[in-house]
């Protein structure tokens, strides 16, 4: 309990220090606030609901064997695509500096997406074979 109270007090102190730094050193607080709130709102109100809808669609339309691999593929490709938005859009590219953002990011992303898709298809085929064998043996138990 003492450790928890100490962590709590330390946490509040560090947070307050960060808030003080922000208020005293940064002049454009409205823009900071917009970005802080926008990140949380976009995540909670747009990103997660989209994934939830995809989940419902997947459980309706995808055969059982493909669901797990497709979800795993979404976790990998979805998160990596999101973190690659700044390079995929090349928003920071500058004509005077060809060494910045100097890869073909679209091609790189397509290769990555191809690998993920290949992984999803392979896993689906393996699972449907295993599933079929289990049905033949009559040991198939449905749950979850």
């Amino acid at each position: 309990m003492t450790a928890r109270v100490a962590l709590g007090a330390l946490g509040v102190a560090l947070t307050a220090y960060g808030g003080w730094l922000l208020v005293t050193r940064e002049s454009d607080l409205l823009d900071v606030a917009t970005w802080l709130v926008a990140g949380a709102v976009l995540h909670d109100a747009v990103l997660v609901p989209t994934v939830l809808v995809l989940g419902v669609v997947a459980t309706r339309w995808l055969p059982w064997a493909a669901r797990g691999p497709a979800a795993a593929g979404l976790v990998v490709l979805g998160s990596v695509t999101l973190l690659a938005v700044p390079v995929l859009g090349r928003f920071g590219a500058r004509a005077d500096n060809p060494t910045l953002l100097d890869r073909d990011y679209t091609a790189g992303w397509l290769v990555l997406a191809g690998l993920v898709l290949a992984g999803v298809v392979t896993a689906t085929l393996v699972r449907s074979r295993l599933g079929a064998r289990r049905v033949e043996r009559g040991s198939n138990t449905r749950s979850g």
Partner: peptide, 26 residues
Amino acid sequence: WSFSFRTTHYAVAWVAAGSLVLHVGI
């Protein structure tokens, strides 16, 4: 954005670290 990246990334880092320590405590 129009804020200073250096100042803001530094200040909000303390906020994130502090609220994370508090969260771990809870």
